[in-house]
Every structure is written in C-alpha cells, then in structure tokens.
Design a protein around this nucleic acid. Structure first.
Lengths: 251, 251
DNA sequence: ACCTGAACACCGTTCAAGT
DNA sequence: ACCTGAACACCGTTCAAGT
C-alpha cells in the first residue's frame, strides 16, 4: 500500500489496468458523459492517470483509436435493426436513429465525418442497410454503393448542426456579401439565400434520404463500366434508360 | 542597403508586404505547387519570412484562412460554367471538373471536406448549379438543398482517394475481419465486400451524380414542412406521392 | 497601423530507461 | 511484456513590446 501521500482514491480506487477496452471506453465516455469536445490521446491518457506513450501498446495511432471509439459509440446506441413497416420506413428509422444519436454528441458527429467505424457495430449497421436495400429491389452492386451515400448523408447532416455555430462566423460574412455584392451577379443565390443557409438540418434530412432512395431505385448500376481516368470527359448517355420501376415497399 | 550579411536574395528579393492576398496565395501555392500536405498558419508564416502572429492582422483565424484558400483554389481552376449540352450533362461536367481539380491536390480535397469556400468563386459555382437545376425543372427550394447534396458528393469522393492510403490501414483489418469473423453473421457484407471497399471513386462518382439527379427530380420538396425535433419520430407517409414526372433535359 | 518574439496551452509519436 | 518520463517536432492564439 502506498503510504507516502494520504490522498483519497475513492474516485479511482486502484489504477485500472490498461487494455484496449478501457482505453476505448474511457475515450468514449470522455466524449459523451464528459463534455470533451474533441478526442486526443493525451486527454485519454490523463483520464487514465498515465502518459500518452502508454497507449501505444494497445493502439497503433490516433486514427485507430478514433475508429474504435466510433464503433463503440455505434454499438452503444440502440438502433432499430429489427424494425417494422416497409423497407423504406425501416431504412429511414435506422438512419434517423443514428443521426439522432450523433446529433446528441457533437464530438461524435465530428468523429463520424472523418472516420469509418472499424468494428462489429459498424459492420452490423452496413449489413442491415444492405439487406434492406436488396430486399427493396436494389441490385446488390447498387446497394453496396448506396450504403456509402446514405451513411455519408447522415454524417454530413450530423456535422452540419455542429458546424452551425462555428460556420456562422464563416457564413455570416458570406451572407452579408450576398446581399451587397450585387444581387444582379448571383440572382439565384440571392433569391434562395434563406434556403441555402437555413441550417435546420433535420428538415433536410428526411428529404435527402428520399432523394437518395428514389435516386437509387431509379438508377441501375451499369454492370460493366469502362474505367475512365477523368470523370470530366465522361459524356452522358443521351437516351438513358431508367431502370426497374419503383416498387415502393412491400408492407 | 543591408551590408551586414551578404546573402543572395534572388529568390525573395525584398520582403513582400503582407496582405490578405499574398497570405492566401502563398498558402494556396504551398498546397498545390509545393508538396505541403496540410495547411497551417505557421507554415504560411514561415514561407513569408515572418511569424504566425503577423497573419492575425489579415485573417481572423485558421478557419477563415482555410475558407479563403479553398475559394481561391476554386477560382484558380477553370470550370465549365458555360457548357453546352443538356443541363444534366452540364451539371456533370461542372462537378466532374471540380472533382478532377480536387483529386489532383489531396491537400485541397482534404480542405474541401471540412470547409466551405467563402468567397466569390464558391458563390459562382453555387449560382451556376442552382441555375442549371432550376432550368432542369427542379423547384427553387429543391435546388437550394440539392446543391449541398451534389457538392458534398464531390468532396466526399475527392477525399476518398485521399483516405485510400491511410484508410487502407484502417480498412485492411476490417476486411480481414469480414472474411474470418463469420460470413454467416454478415452475409450481405461478405458477398459485397469487393464492391464496398473498391475505392475507385471515379466509377462511383458518375453513378452517384445520376442517383442524386434522378432522386432530386423525382422528390419534390414538400412546401410547408412541420418542424420535428427528432427525425427518429418522423413516420413516413405511407402513400407518398411521387412528384413531377422526370423531364430530363431540354436540349 | 503594422509587425515581431516570446510565451502559453495544446497536439502525436518515439525512445531510452525502468519494472 | 508492459509502463513511464522526457524529448522531439509540431499546432493555434495571445500579448507586450517595438516601429
């Protein structure tokens, strides 16, 4: 027993043994329970009464920690994997729940924008989405790409609310500029400035998911695509065939 | 004349006077001409033979610098604002050119993912997109939201190529996990793992833009939306009306 | 008004040294 | 095998001091 200094250790009775799990879970609780607004190895180390160097036994670098933390977060929220209703409703419920969870924790929303959850929880989310989309009639190949699109939208909207405050500083001048810099030069922009800078991401979210689902259903992934180096040169097929008719749901 | 030390000043004849413009342009050339892979006030300051503190006379903070640099970049590439062909082709050409430019400069692709170009060049890009979409029959309100979706896709794809190398480290373990952790648990994922981790963003880009455009055309923005706090609770309208028939282009 | 150096409060990562 | 302190090479931002 350490007798040299008599300090209550009630809050941290014995120094917790380090492990990948405690590192990830204290990192996560730093971002959710604590008010920490960003993740850093040093903060996690401090919370564990040690130095940053100690974490490198269990984690390769910050990026890996970020992935693990995000996956742990995804695992901690309860997502409606087994929903009811038609497949579209279930996709929306799933993504909406994920969005809601991210929005409650700005630091996680930030994480999600730049990191992919590397772990079973992230995989399960993707698996479920794939299954729903394929059930809905999307081709497997299309579904694979679509999942990225859908999840990117979630993280974008989640981060938007976040940016809202800091982006206000960046956007406010832009907004003033729009009014003054001649509404003759950017008439569309001027007319729609309210809609563009509305920022109430929640409204847009429902619409965006519908856009994506409708688009995904009506845009078959062409089987064998010739690889182009630059998409710039990719001419659009003029008489583009629209694919499998919308078969919206099957409730 | 300074006689104390005889050092050739050919490369930097006289100390350039500081100004917002030289700061932004040297920052930009650091990211494009030079091989710098990230932007920092200190690097820009060093390139200008001064200290970081000096820049604060012209720039409020890093975030503002980032916005200015990104806008300067957008202004430096030549985008096909006046294209030919139907509006869809023009949207694709515009976004494709932007994507191509970002892909050539990973540092800029990185910037674009987290920053909005605050300046005339960014505004012009948005204005042009709004105009094309509205010309194509998208409602103004829909167009306002759609622009965000389209530009987000560009920056996401641009950043993907970037992440590719560093994400390989994160994804490689995940990929191995998929194979081993039971393909019984995530059958969809296992079957589609190649498509998911394909990473050749250019292929996906054309498809994604089509998805977005088709989706945007077939998903009217409902005029008066009741504001919900949480999208989680937002039940889908069961018999959802699909809007204005696709009127694809008008060439 | 503009520029500067120094300081402050942070980062991630490495490494020799301890147990 | 695990942990540690110290060091290295970075960050953004502030501030008193100079011109």
């Amino acid at each position: 027993m350490n007798q040299r200094t008599i300090v209550s250790r009630r809050t941290r009775p014995a120094k917790e043994a380090l492990s990948r799990d405690v590192i990830v879970s204290t990192a996560l609780s730093l971002l959710t329970a604590e008010n920490a607004e960003s993740l850093s190895l040093r903060k996690v180390a401090t919370a564990l009464d040690t130095g940053a160097a100690s974490l490198y036994v269990y984690v390769a670098n910050v990026e890996e920690l970020r992935s693990l933390v995000l996956d742990a977060f995804v695992g901690s929220i309860d997502l409606p994997f087994q929903g009811s209703g038609d497949w579209r409703a279930r996709v929306k419920a799933l993504l909406g729940a994920y969005l809601g969870a991210l929005q409650q924790h700005p630091a996680l929303a930030d994480l999600a924008r730049t990191t992919v959850p590397a772990g079973p929880s992230g995989l399960r989310l993707v698996e479920t989405l794939l299954d729903l989309l394929i059930t809905g009639g999307v081709s497997p190949g299309g579904a694979a790409w679509a999942v990225d699109l859908l999840l990117a939208e979630v993280t974008n909207v989640a981060a938007e609310r976040n940016v809202g405050s800091s982006e206000a500083a960046v956007l406010a001048p832009a907004e003033r500029a729009i009014d003054s810099i001649m509404q003759a030069e950017f008439p569309r922009l001027h007319a729609l400035r309210e809609d563009l800078f509305s920022g109430s991401g929640s409204d847009r979210f429902g619409w965006a998911i519908d856009v994506l689902l409708n688009g995904i259903l009506s845009t078959p992934r062409t089987p064998a695509v010739k690889k182009h180096q630059s998409p710039r040169t990719e001419a659009p097929r003029p008489g583009q065939k629209r694919g499998s008719r919308n078969t919206p749901g099957n409730r």
